[in-house]
Write a protein that binds this DNA or RNA. Structure first.
Lengths: 111, 111
DNA sequence: TTACTTAATCGTATATTTGCGATATAAGAT
DNA sequence: ATCTTATATCGCAAATATACGATTAAGTAA
């Protein structure tokens, strides 16, 4: 039995899916929102904002970092994170390439 | 122990996450790509294109439909699907509102 | 040195996702 | 009515995600 046949798809499909997956949780959206609005490295504070335990927030941060949506530096006993704008730019391009370039001529719903 | 505390977040955060989650699989990205490129209702064919069993593809289609990314009509023994452009437009706006409007002044990576 | 602070990781329980085969459904063909 | 075709749903097994408390690690302060 083969589970997770993700390798059967193209690299671009997998990349897009991986990016979307990293955003596929409200907690991670909230984290990204904070980082985007602050527009600087945010050290801590995120734990105080989210309604989750410290360990859980740390896991979400790790996922975002692993997926490449954010970067992080260790600065003494605390860690600082900020948005990886380059990754978002790439995602946005890919996303628009797939879906947005046809949007105008498709305003008419077909079914 | 509370699992899945998604209700603790704002509706917009949940909506964005739900949309992202629907795209968080290469198979569903591939399906969306086909529908976007064809630019019309696609009946069947999707099963032939994807390297997955018919029942699995049907499940992915159901997820996309439930999340509102695609629409579908039953047409005799066959079903036809097409992209819900309105949903994509909404997602794109929300996405850009959160992340893209700050992109230009943030090209400098901070960490 | 011993505390204190901050964040990451471990261990674990539960929930969800993924995939397939088997079965059901529903319309058209014979 | 039966057969065929196309799609959806069910039932199950395995993988992954989610969350928390407890612990660890590493720097700072006393």
């Amino acid at each position: 039995m083969a589970f997770h046949k993700k390798e059967e798809f193209t690299q671009k499909e997998q990349d897009l899916a991986a990016f979307a997956k990293a955003m596929a949780h409200p907690a991670r959206i909230a984290i990204l929102k904070v980082l985007a609005q602050r527009n600087e490295c945010v050290c801590g504070e995120i734990v105080d904002i989210l309604p989750l335990a410290q360990s859980t927030v740390s896991q979400h941060l790790k996922e975002l970092k692993t997926a490449g949506l954010i970067t992080g530096t260790v600065d003494g006993p605390r860690s600082c994170y900020c948005i990886n704008w380059k990754a978002f730019s790439t995602f946005n391009s890919e996303f628009n390439f797939l879906f947005a370039n046809l949007k105008i001529k498709n305003e008419k719903a077909c079914c």
